[in-house]
Write a protein that binds this DNA or RNA. Structure first.
Lengths: 209, 209
DNA sequence: GTTTAATTGAAACATACGTATGAGTGACAC
DNA sequence: GTGTCACTCATACGTATGTTTCAATTAAAC
């Protein structure tokens, strides 16, 4: 039982997050991991399979924790609040990102990368989340037309994704104003912002000629 | 005056948006543009310079239009509203994306592209925007601690970016529920969501031991 | 019409990539 | 010991990339 596999996963996670999937070469990964180049094709079969493995290792637990937190919130006899639903969506990924430096940009990149790759990954991991959280939002008291609800969920996901994508540069970008050491505080801010957005009155559409 | 340069820019914009910057080869671009391979290194000096040119052609006008709309809003004797500020930020890029199919994914790409590149682009185009919109938010009546204000602006940008990133797949992802033909409607939704988020009461932080 | 500069063309350059190969190494079973 | 197995290693293969070269072509200037 060698930790070569783990070292490859760790290095790949770090470099994928920093430089993207396409621009990270297997040679860069194996150099960083201090492992032979062929090891990656031995333990995984290809670069694509390695990418899948890297994602599975991190997104799997986050998805499970999301659904778990939602279960707890829904079981609360005090009732399901909008804030609890949003927190169940945001907290697991933010907390995971805090504990694992280099994970945030990776998560962010997944959420911000369109195209074939996204469809493969996003549908695999996010379909379950979407199909559970959309009804939960309704059950928490949000009263919106389906279209409006979907757009606002979209905005919410965008806010979260942006936080993750820019996590590495956020302190510098804000001239030190915004730090990332306190994940709870970030989640709280995000929850407050998105809950208010979700509760915004629906814009009346003017008829067009 | 040949349009070779323009044809290269058009093809590059399309392919960069669809497949990303790194994964788009100059050969793919020149083939699509029906132009000789060497033309790209003749008219531009390198692939990096081509990327810069592609971005400048589209982001430049959007940035100018943003500041222009903010000028108009600030000159309004009726006073500067939060909604007007957010609209000045969101409308130009959404409208540009509507008029120029293939632009939205390109904008999205920028957000999803790593470290050094993003910092180069983001700082060049967004610094001016940030330094104008942050004060404008304050002047529009938003009363928030600086740190909270910055985070919420960050969330807002994230919502907008996400809309652009996922523009090509949004109809499919929502099972046809959310369409993109009406840019104004999207901007209105975004403004309503973000304005409410900006006005959310500030979460009181509990002291930690 | 001739000269000059700007542009395009086909081909080659060196380099980097993902992948495959086969020899080598260590541990453990019998 | 002698296999056997999982693993690691150095190296090579084929291909694709960004860039360069220099001749061919076109367009403008005088």
């Amino acid at each position: 039982m060698s930790d070569t596999k783990t070292r490859i996963l760790d290095a790949a996670e770090q470099l994928f997050g920093r430089n993207g999937f396409e621009s990270t070469s297997l040679r860069a990964i194996t150099t960083e991991a201090q492992v032979n180049l062929a090891a990656v094709n031995y333990h995984f079969q290809s670069k694509d399979a390695l990418i899948d493995a890297v994602l599975e290792r991190r997104i799997g637990p986050v998805t499970r924790r999301r659904l778990e937190m939602l279960d707890v919130a829904e079981a609360d006899p005090a009732g399901l609040t909008l804030e609890k639903v949003i927190e169940a969506f945001a907290a697991p990924v933010v907390e995971a990102a805090m504990g694992q430096p280099g994970l945030a940009p990776l998560m962010g990149r997944i959420m911000a990368t369109p195209g074939a790759f996204l469809e493969r990954v996003f549908l695999r991991y996010m379909e379950a989340v979407k199909s559970r959280f959309l009804p939960a939002l309704l059950r928490s008291g949000v009263r919106l037309p389906p279209e409006e609800l979907f757009w606002r969920l979209h905005f919410m996901v965008g806010s979260l994704a942006h936080v993750l994508v820019f996590a590495p540069v956020m302190p510098a970008m804000s001239n030190g104003l915004c730090q990332l050491n306190d994940g709870r505080a970030i989640v709280n801010r995000l929850v407050a912002f998105c809950a208010a957005g979700m509760r915004a009155p629906v814009e009346q559409m003017e008829k067009e000629a």
